[in-house]
């Protein structure tokens, strides 16, 4: 996994609540056996018209947001299906940070597994950042995970909090499967105890 330390980039404003994962990547694009290549289908139903042409009204079809690396949205971002294709599509498009008042649980966890930082900030702050983002090419935000601050174009620093273990994994690009595999002996011990107490789980 690519470590996430500091990111300075174009922020795209998406002032919508309840952006569900079907919206981020509709189910018809889940028929892939790879993690890559989903960027072109990100927000497909909003981004393209029924004839396949780009919808010029959608933010990611406009300059400079075609090059957005940060997305700022409203409440309950990523609700719905558990599909990890949603963070894969964001990542493949080039987005490595989503800022919103809150996130749905499964999507929130999936982001960290893919080097994407979800930042929770109050709605009023998100609205301020959305206004910043609407400044176009000057809409560059900095997200510093080391210092845990978002830096606005005017230089103001906004602190955010993040789970310490997830921050550590993200900063160092750690694969937690590898970390847990080092606990094999402890898992063995659990299984022996469980097998004695609940043998029906080990037919």
């Amino acid at each position: 996994m690519t470590p996430f330390t500091t990111l300075t980039g174009i922020a795209a404003p998406l002032p919508m609540a309840n952006v569900d994962t079907d919206k981020i990547i509709p189910a018809r694009f889940l028929k892939t056996i790879a993690r890559t290549g989903l960027g072109k289908s990100l927000f497909a139903n909003l981004r393209y018209k029924s004839d396949g042409e780009e919808n010029p009204d959608f933010v990611l079809n406009r300059e400079p947001y075609r090059h957005a690396e940060i997305l700022v949205a409203h409440e309950n971002f990523g609700c719905g299906s558990s599909r990890e294709h949603a963070p894969w599509a964001l990542l493949d498009f080039g987005i490595r940070c989503v800022i919103a008042p809150d996130f749905a649980d499964i999507f929130h966890g999936n982001c960290f597994k893919n080097g994407i930082l979800p930042v929770k900030l109050p709605r009023a702050v998100c609205d301020q950042l959305i206004e910043d983002a609407q400044m176009g090419p000057n809409a560059r935000l900095t997200v510093d995970l080391q210092k845990q601050v978002v830096i606005r174009p005017n230089g103001e620093e906004i602190p955010f909090s993040v789970d310490p273990f997830r921050r550590h994994c993200l900063l160092n690009g750690l694969d937690d499967v590898g970390l847990t595999m080092q606990r094999g002996a402890v898992i063995d011990g659990f299984e022996s105890r469980q097998k004695a107490a609940q043998p029906w789980l080990y037919p």
Binding site: K113, F165, T180
Partner: peptide
């Protein structure tokens, strides 16, 4: 509960999940 594909891989390899 539902999990993402990275967690599917974690369960495959370790039969566990990291959970708060």
């Amino acid at each position: 509960f539902g999990i993402g594909t990275s967690e599917v891989e974690h369960v495959f390899a370790t039969q566990t999940l990291l959970q708060k």
